[in-house]
């Protein structure tokens, strides 16, 4: 194993991702949790960028950090009236969630054993063009169906939210 620059960056980003993920689980202050999630999402975007998947990285920042996380922060700020102090660090649910996490870890390790060495290179810069050719070519029907589904969901949200006025 050689320690060239990409490997070092990968190790650093991976460590940041792990630490921030642990922050989300272990910190009991909900705003810190959200920030930990943000750092985690950004470090994953950094990993995507490291492997040359620039479109994926940018989308990750746009959709997850700029969209989902902001909505979560909105919800937290609107709901949280007072800081209710620190909750207990250990609860009876922890055994269940820990075993689920362990099981997931084992499953992913087994499943990804063969592929772990395949992603050492970087994607070509034209990855976005290939992606769009796949989406607008062979997978057009699936793409359109997914779009239609999202549109239906959007209309449903408007109907539910505006239902009281009548």
């Amino acid at each position: 194993m050689s320690f060239d620059a990409p490997t070092i960056v990968q190790i650093i980003l991976g460590a940041i991702a792990l630490l921030s993920a642990m922050t989300v689980v272990l910190v009991r202050e909900i705003m810190r949790m959200a920030i930990g999630l943000g750092v985690f999402l950004l470090s994953v975007a950094g990993l995507f960028l490291l492997y040359g998947a620039s479109f994926l990285a940018t989308s990750e920042v746009f959709v997850y950090v700029g969209g989902v996380l902001v909505l979560m922060l909105f919800a937290i700020m609107l709901v949280q009236r007072s800081d209710s102090g620190r909750a207990v660090l250990v609860s009876r649910h922890d055994i269940g969630s820990a075993s689920v996490a362990l099981g997931l870890f084992v499953m992913l390790t087994v499943a990804l054993q063969g592929v772990s060495n395949r992603f050492t290179g970087s994607a070509p810069e034209s990855s976005m063009q290939e992606l769009s050719e796949v989406l607008m070519g062979g997978r057009l029907v699936q793409y359109e169906i997914a779009g239609l589904l999202l549109l239906v969901a959007l209309v449903a949200v408007i109907v539910i939210a505006g239902g009281d006025e009548r």
């Binding site: 943000g38 950004l42 940018t58 920042v61 746009f62 950090v65 700029g66 902001v70 922060l73």
Partner: peptide
């Protein structure tokens, strides 16, 4: 995309 992070 990137300036949308500053909303946070």
């Amino acid at each position: 995309a990137v300036p949308s992070v500053s909303v946070i």
